[in-house]
Computed example of a mutant assay.
Amino acid sequence: MDEKNYTGAIPGQQKGDVITAESTCTFVGPEEAIGFFNLAKSRLLHVNGWQERAGKALARFTLTDADGHPVPGAAREGLLICVDIPGPGGEQAGGYDWVKIEEIKEADSGDVQSVALRVRPVAAPHSSDAEPTHFYAQTSTSTFTVTREHARVTAAVYDRNIEPNTETGSLIDKVRNAIVGFFAEKAFSKLQWQSLTDGLMELS
């Protein structure tokens, strides 16, 4: 699968693993595709609805401010996302994993429209540990995109430079992150992101 990197938001791959998930819908003409692109873009930017799109058996995503307070509405650069994955969570963050929205970019050349949202693991709000409160290391990123190319609309997630986070100060969290990170790399993230991209592309 070719990266839909029209915005330039997807980082280059330097080390670690790569995970890509992609779902596509093709329409009769560009007018219908433009309308669906705008709908899918809204779904992407409303992070609080991701679990409903991906399936309730998978992770729950909550958009928050820098203090961890829930935020309604669309995603914005600088906000955090609290991730509640099935199974045991990190000890130091009350069972949650945290990422920061570090970039939201759009591109529009007429025949091509694209929006990208990139996140990176960070420490939980008010955490005494500078290391990310996440099973992935800080070098890891996830970039979520919705792209229209003529009459085709594609939702995709690009995980790049993926490595388990084993630098946390807690021994329990080191073990947990190594185990969860391994299974996320091999299976869970692909399942999660494929379910999300499929949900973003639902016609109803």
Rank of each mutant, 00 (worst) to 15 (best):
K4R: 11
Y6R: 04
T7M: 05
G8A: 07
G12C: 03
Q13T: 03
Q13S: 03
Q14L: 12
D17E: 11
V18R: 15
V18W: 12
T20A: 14
T20S: 12
S23V: 01
S23K: 13
S23Q: 13
T24C: 05
T24D: 06
V28S: 11
E32M: 05
E32H: 05
E32Y: 02
A33Q: 07
A33G: 02
I34T: 14
I34W: 03
I34N: 08
I34P: 00
G35F: 08
G35T: 08
S42V: 10
R43Y: 02
L44N: 00
L44S: 02
H46C: 11
V47W: 00
N48W: 04
W50Q: 04
W50E: 07
Q51W: 02
Q51F: 00
R53C: 11
A54N: 02
A54S: 15
A54D: 02
A54K: 04
K56R: 10
R60Y: 03
R60A: 13
T64I: 08
D65R: 13
D65Y: 07
A66L: 13
A66S: 14
D67R: 15
D67Y: 08
G68T: 10
V71P: 06
V71L: 15
V71D: 05
G73D: 10
G73R: 14
A74D: 10
A75T: 04
A75S: 09
E77R: 15
L80D: 07
V83L: 14
P88T: 04
G90P: 03
E91W: 13
G95R: 07
D97E: 15
W98M: 06
V99Y: 01
V99G: 00
V99T: 11
K100P: 00
I101C: 03
E103I: 09
E103H: 07
E106P: 08
E106Y: 08
E106K: 14
D108L: 06
D108C: 06
S109H: 06
G110I: 01
D111M: 03
V112P: 09
S114Y: 01
A116F: 01
R118A: 08
V119A: 09
R120T: 12
P121G: 07
P121N: 08
A123I: 04
A124W: 00
A130W: 00
A130T: 13
E131Y: 05
P132N: 05
T133F: 07
F135I: 12
Y136A: 10
A137S: 15
Q138K: 07
S140N: 06
T143N: 09
F144A: 11
T145V: 15
V146F: 05
T147Y: 03
R148F: 05
R152F: 01
R152M: 11
A155S: 12
A156G: 15
V157F: 03
V157Q: 02
R160E: 07
N161T: 05
N161F: 04
N161S: 03
E163T: 05
E163H: 02
G169H: 09
G169W: 06
S170N: 11
I179R: 14
I179E: 13
G181K: 09
G181I: 10
G181Q: 08
F183P: 01
E185M: 15
E185L: 10
Q192K: 03
T197P: 08
L200C: 01
L200P: 00
L203T: 15
S204E: 13
S204Q: 14
